[in-house]
Design a protein around this nucleic acid. Structure first.
Length: 488
RNA sequence: CGGGGUGUAGCGCAGCCCGGUUAGCGCGCGUCGUUCGGGACGACGAGGCCGGAGGUUCGAAUCCUCUCACCCCGACCA
């Protein structure tokens, strides 16, 4: 075996790193905390991006681009916002280098100090709202529904490929509305898009919920989220959508005139998902043999491996199959590599997560068949060459569905209702996963539970039923269960 | 940012305690041949300023100091 992957059961963290590196998704870089996203990983991200972008546009959003740098003074205009991000900002202080007078390469030119220091954006609310002030005058300018695809920098102490990097790629939507109701509606509409994207494309079931005061975005009135459950029983916040109230409008004096010629502050939302989703994708589906990519996001959905190696006869049949598949919009490649043996290729494509592999040899051609292997279950079957495109099309859909079902079943098995603190601990230390428990609604209790168990409130489920109960820690009355978990 | 660990060929490691000629092994890589339906085999070969910078010494992968990166555990976070 050329590329050993640590088994999940032995060391889950190492398994994750092995998958990311050996499947060619990303690598560490020369810069601390920053990663290189490699072609295979970037191709998956591009597919995610394209789908989300389409969904945003279908709901009336447009893309724009705002600067990477934010004047330091902007960040401090919204008190909670600056407090949330101040600890992890990269700051630009100078604009020029010079030759070191002592001959040690180049040094920062002390003469080139910036009048006002610039922050590398950790998020763009401030620069965007500073701009919106000029764009919004009348209710006729609203709503303003803008998204940007960008990189941001948050100077993290501890980083993990995709899950938490100092620089990451994301989209951030920033919308402005005339009424509170409309802004809240927008926040929830985006949450639905995120949930639909996660479930339909990533095959990753998610819980929709609201964050507690303690967990919400710095500067938001309410933070909604989608939460996913990874195979090791830990939760992953996969996307957030914030109702920002009038906080940024007030901080940046963004007002509009309503139909009655009265001045009002606008209502805001912001929302984002990042390359962190790549980490979620890996940890939702992959196994000890490598990556598993849901067909709807796979850069290559089908690969044809000639057995034992490419030749003219196999090549002709492969071409026919490829035409038939491409007619159906299925992406397919024929492996023309002469130097590697079939067994090696099989392992390699499994490692990379290609959903379907077709094995095509002399024997198959004589029998008018092709061997079809699916990555999710590793099952193989021979199917007639005639109907192979239809078969593969159905199979891809089935794989997509199966991956979702598998993840959904895992989550169901790892979601536990508990009514005592003993049970709470037992579940967390045992099978892990989501724990549904009553909570008295105070930050104090929430922090105490975190201190005692390392579990946080992932969300207060949006569609949760009302149910009278007692807080799992304090015993005080509670009206609804919330979802706890240890999280990434 | 605290505590622990690891840096030696593309990857995985040995050597380090107890300094001493050309620094080893497995996988991978190159050439040739035989192979080829689940990570082939043989022969030959290429590849290292031993993470970096200082220091100790006649001599440093090995000892000392500093630094950087990564991993694990905490605190912080998408």
């Amino acid at each position: 075996m050329a590329k050993e992957i640590t088994a999940r059961a032995d060391d889950y963290s190492q398994w994750y790193i092995d998958i990311v590196k050996k499947a060619g998704l990303a690598d560490n870089s020369a810069v601390r905390g920053c990663m290189v996203i490699k072609p295979h990983g970037f191709a998956i991200w591009e597919n995610m991006r394209d789908q989300l972008d389409r969904m945003f546009k279908e709901t009336g959003h447009v893309n724009a681009y705002f600067p990477l740098f934010i004047p330091k003074s902007f960040l401090s205009k919204e008190a909670e916002h600056v407090e949330g991000f101040a600890k992890e900002c990269a700051v630009v202080t100078h604009h020029r280098l010079m030759n070191d007078p002592n001959g040690n390469g180049v040094v920062v030119d002390p003469e080139a100090k910036l009048e006002e220091e610039l922050i590398v954006r950790p998020t763009s609310e401030t620069i965007i709202w500073n701009t919106y002030r000029d764009w919004i005058n009348s209710y006729r300018d609203l709503p303003l529904l803008i998204n940007q695809w960008a990189n941001v920098v948050r100077w993290e102490m501890r980083t993990r490929l995709f899950l938490r990097t100092a620089e990451f790629l994301w989209q951030e939507g920033h919308t402005a509305h005339a009424t509170k109701a409309e802004a809240v509606e927008e926040t929830l509409k985006i949450l639905d898009i995120y949930a639909r994207f996660a479930e339909e494309y990533m095959a990753m079931p998610v819980l929709k919920g609201v964050k507690t005061i303690n967990e919400r975005f710095a500067g938001a009135e309410d933070t909604y989220c989608i939460e996913a459950l990874m195979q090791d029983g830990k939760a992953l916040q996969a996307g957030t959508s914030h109702f920002l109230g009038q906080n940024f409008a007030k901080a940046f004096e963004v007002k509009f005139q309503n139909e009655n010629n009265e001045e009002e502050f606008v209502w805001a939302t912001s929302w984002g998902v990042s390359t962190r989703l790549m980490g979620g994708l890996v940890m939702t589906h992959s196994d000890d043999d490598g990556l598993i990519i849901p067909p709807k996001l796979a850069p290559m959905q089908v690969v044809i491996v000639p057995i034992p190696k490419p030749n003219e006869v196999i090549g002709e049949v492969a071409e026919k199959i490829m035409r038939a598949l491409r007619d159906k919009g299925i992406s397919v490649q024929y492996d023309r590599d002469m130097t590697k043996r079939p067994g090696f290729k099989f392992a390699e494509y499994e490692l990379k997560g290609i959903p379907v592999r077709l094995g095509l040899g002399q024997r198959d051609i004589e029998n008018g068949q092709v061997e079809v292997a699916r990555r999710d279950t590793k099952e193989k079957s021979s199917v007639p060459l005639d109907g192979v495109a239809d078969y593969v099309e159905k199979l891809l859909a089935e794989i997509q569905q199966n991956l979702y079902q598998r993840a959904y079943d895992y989550r169901t098995e790892h979601t536990t209702r508990v009514d005592s603190f003993e049970e709470f601990n037992e579940v967390l230390d045992g099978k892990g996963g989501f724990v549904e428990a009553h909570w008295d609604g105070t930050t104090e209790t929430e922090l105490q539970i975190k201190e005692l168990t390392k579990a946080t409130i992932r969300c207060i489920p949006i569609d949760g039923e009302e149910e009278a109960g007692k807080c799992v820690l304090s015993g005080k009355p509670s009206k609804q269960r919330v979802v706890f978990a240890r999280a990434y």
